[in-house]
């Protein structure tokens, strides 16, 4: 038969209160096995309290060639940041 096990992406929450972060990938035939493999491969040193897995083929990614049109327009919107607004020094707690 020789069918390769699909690739899964693994996300781990290192402790409650933090978000899940991508830590790597692995091979598994179903989601149950993917979670178990992730537990065995990526949490050997107590790295996590929660695991997400998703089969890689279901991830859609932005195209790096479109990087300029996607991300450059945000560059000159300085008014979205607090430092854009000048206030006198004596104004506190703002």
């Amino acid at each position: 038969m020789k069918k390769e096990w699909p690739i899964w992406e693994v996300f781990i929450r290192t402790k409650n209160g933090l978000e899940h972060r991508h830590v790597g990938s692995l091979h598994a035939t179903d989601s149950k096995m993917a979670i178990e493999n992730a537990r065995d491969v990526y949490t050997r040193r107590q790295e996590g309290v929660s695991i997400w897995v998703v089969e890689s083929k279901y991830i859609s990614a932005s195209n790096p060639d479109n990087g300029e049109e996607l991300f450059d327009p945000a560059k000159d919107k300085a008014y979205r940041h607090p430092t854009f607004y000048k206030l006198p020094d004596e104004v506190k707690h703002m």
Binding site: L26, H27, A28, E36, N37, D40, V41, R44
Partner: peptide, 11 residues
């Protein structure tokens, strides 16, 4: 039989 399984059995 696979790296993943190898790691699991060792655990």
């Amino acid at each position: 039989p696979s790296l993943e399984t190898d790691i699991a059995l060792t655990n």
